[in-house]
Design a binder for these strands. Structure first.
Length: 477
RNA sequence: CGGGGCGUGGCGCAGCUUGGCUAGCGCGCUACAAUGGGGUUGUAGAGGUCCCGGGUUCAAAUCCCGGCGCCCCGACCA
């Protein structure tokens, strides 16, 4: 393996794959388009899972598991759904050496099987709402793949809920969108724009799709989580009905929402630098790496004794790891843990032992700045504070970057310039033709219509007609 | 599916144009010694179907034909 990542400014895409691989997150698998998530990457994903799962439970959801194989006919029951997903299905036609009577689809998403089961389970308004989430893998036969951002198989969670009324389902859709936004901001330190997708960008089978959009380090957009209001489309296709209070048969209203391992790619691209990964403390598998330093065996024993004490005091509050390998020099270890994105490093050497202090270095602050002699007493509080500061600073920096690269172009010429460099936040008449023209012209698409915007009127940036909403435009992954 | 690049010890590559000694370099790996506060040296080692198949030739990593695979860039997509 090379010893240094390709500089970000030189070749962003190579920088990304370098950081993912050298940061020990993932590796290419023998099957094209598939990847192996290595322990460090998986630990990061586990923390993403934990942060989301906690929020799902807090909003009344429960986990369940539905099968990987779905009868092909299920996918075909909802017209828009089949049209959207057909091109990327993996289909099993042989099982146990025999041709199957009906081919099985490897799930690309589970609306259909879950809809089928909901039809069985839901009889009465008393059965509603159903608030189920599943953690699973899905397969989509993608033409072009990229580690974490788009792989043939990926891990995600998909929530599927059924409600008695449209209002309730809509509320749920937005509630989960907000859960994603909150997670992104608070845990991943990634600022996001929550908004409604345009018709052309909407999920196959949805009435309305929403997403959180984030800006990567190259100013391109990454859809980082989606929430869909499915109306009664799947309820009708799968005959999910309930008897209401007036003894009348009604179709339920459903939602679905998902967030995938793509989020790991977002974390890499938003926070990483030329030294490698930079992980937000709340999600970092290791928050504090302790590197003991010694010259002789006697020093080694002395230092390690203090290290053991320090580790014991921090262990309960901080995810801490001691790198006491004898075969690597301290400098080597510094680089290694920087590549892996550990937010805070603690060095203890003979000099520190003598003075009852340690040295702390922040991953997000370049060079040797951020290092300081920190007394052993009160170290726990100091570490906690620094981790909190790093978390806050990472968010602040990402937010500044997003704002600095979001433009409000005055005319179409400025608009073209804006979307070649970042996001444009512009009036849009809502017409798909304008969207299509912009895409052809600039390669930028509507990312979303932000929910949080002042009501007002303006002129569509593309056609000049009256517009009542502004959209975020940008090039996307 | 279109465009580009690449396939040579574990990893990164050179060698190929102009065929020819025993296929080389860096990193990593093993052993020993010194070193240790920003990728530390030295010495000695281990490790190769040169992607696969065919052809040309006295001789192929190198030339010719065919295949396979991967990465990157576009269209499709979380």
């Amino acid at each position: 393996m090379a010893t240094k990542v390709t500089p970000r400014s030189e070749d962003y895409s190579r920088w990304y794959t370098d950081v993912v691989q050298m940061g020990d997150l993932a590796d290419y698998a023998p099957v094209k388009g598939c990847m192996v998530i290595k322990p460090h990457g998986y630990a990061l994903w586990e923390n993403v899972k934990a942060g989301l799962d906690r929020r799902f439970k807090a909003t009344g959801h429960v986990n369940a598991y539905f099968p990987l194989f779905i009868p092909l006919s299920f996918i075909q029951k909802e017209a828009a759904h089949v049209e959207g997903f057909s091109p990327e299905l993996a289909i099993v036609t042989i099982g146990g050496g025999k041709q199957l009577e009906e081919p099985l689809v490897v799930r690309p998403t589970s609306e259909t099987v879950i809809g089928h089961m909901y039809a069985k389970w839901i009889q009465s308004y008393r059965d509603l709402p159903v608030l189920i989430n599943q953690w699973a893998n899905v397969v989509r036969w993608e033409m072009r793949t990229r580690l974490f951002l788009r792989t043939m198989e990926f891990l995600w969670q998909e929530g599927h809920t059924a409600h008695a009324t449209a209002e309730e389902a809509q509320e749920e859709t937005l509630r989960m969108l907000n859960v994603y936004a909150e997670f992104a901001v608070e845990d991943a330190a990634i600022p996001v724009i929550a908004g409604r997708k345009s018709e052309s960008e909407r999920f196959a089978g949805a009435v309305t799709s929403y997403s959180i959009e984030a800006m990567m380090g190259d100013c391109k957009a990454l859809q980082s989580g989606t929430s869909h209001f499915l109306g009664q489309n799947f309820a009708r296709a799968f005959d999910i009905k309930y008897l209401d209070e007036n003894n009348e048969l009604q179709h339920v209203w459903t939602t679905s929402w998902g967030l995938s391992t793509r989020m790991v790619g977002a974390i890499v691209m938003v926070h990483g630098d030329d030294q490698g990964l930079v992980l937000p403390p709340k999600l970092a598998p290791v928050q504090l790496i302790i590197v003991p330093i010694w010259k002789s065996d006697s020093e080694r024993a002395q230092v390690l004794e203090v290290v053991a004490r320090v580790e014991a005091t921090l262990r309960d509050e901080v995810r801490v790891h001691v790198d006491d390998r004898d075969e690597y020099s301290p400098g080597w270890k510094f680089n290694e843990w920087e590549l892996r994105g550990v937010p805070l490093r603690l060095e203890i050497g003979p000099r520190d032992v003598e003075r009852d202090q340690v040295t702390l270095a922040r991953r997000d602050v370049p060079g040797r700045e951020g290092k300081s002699g920190v007394p052993l007493s009160g170290l726990g509080e100091e570490v906690q504070e620094m981790l909190a500061t790093i978390q806050a600073d990472l968010y602040r920096r990402a937010l500044d970057f997003l704002q600095a690269n979001t433009y409000d172009p005055k005319d179409y010429a400025e608009f073209r310039e804006a979307v070649s460099r970042g996001f444009a936040y512009s009036w849009w008449c809502g017409d798909a033709d304008c969207e299509a023209r912009i895409k052809e012209d600039t390669r930028a698409t509507t990312r979303c219509v932000p929910l949080d915007q002042e009501p007002g009127r303006g002129k569509c940036i593309a056609c000049g007609k009256d517009a009542v909403e502004r959209a975020i435009f940008g090039r996307a992954y």
